[in-house]
Amino acid sequence: MTEGLTKAAARNIFYGGSLFFFLLFTALTAHSHWYMVNTSTDSEGLTDSVELGKHVWEENMCINCHSIMGEGAYFAPELANVWERYGGHDNPEGARMALTAWMRAQPTGAEGRRQMPYFDLSDEEMNALIDFLKWTDSIDDQDWPPHPAG
């Protein structure tokens, strides 16, 4: 850089500046945590069933095909808004039945179509998974995605 900058000065700027930005980042993260728990997510609705549903989601590693809030493998549809896509806002019972039936019917075996494996979920686990997806749909995420298509 400029001739006037010495190595010692560059080092001090690095350490001082990094510490400053780290503290700022930590403070904003703490505020975001608070905001998520109190404002953008439904903390009261985070029932044992939703929590179990998150475990089911993780145990079956859904994230390595699907995405949720845009993060995952992009090989299969976005699921943060699948509740909305299945009409859960207007007809929760219908959406629950349709999602259950869809997952129970896998794999389709259709030639040339991406295959979702069969996951051996109990009724409790299936309901919990859907509760988790329904809860996730309710997160205030700045209106993402732009279309119900996900």
């Binding site: 930005f21 905001y35 700045q142």
Partner: peptide
């Protein structure tokens, strides 16, 4: 680090974090 620490913000747009 000056750019990358707060640059984490580009992952916080759509996950329920504040709009800032």
């Amino acid at each position: 680090l000056f750019s990358g620490l707060l640059g984490t913000g580009h992952h916080y747009y759509w996950i329920g974090a504040p709009s800032y």
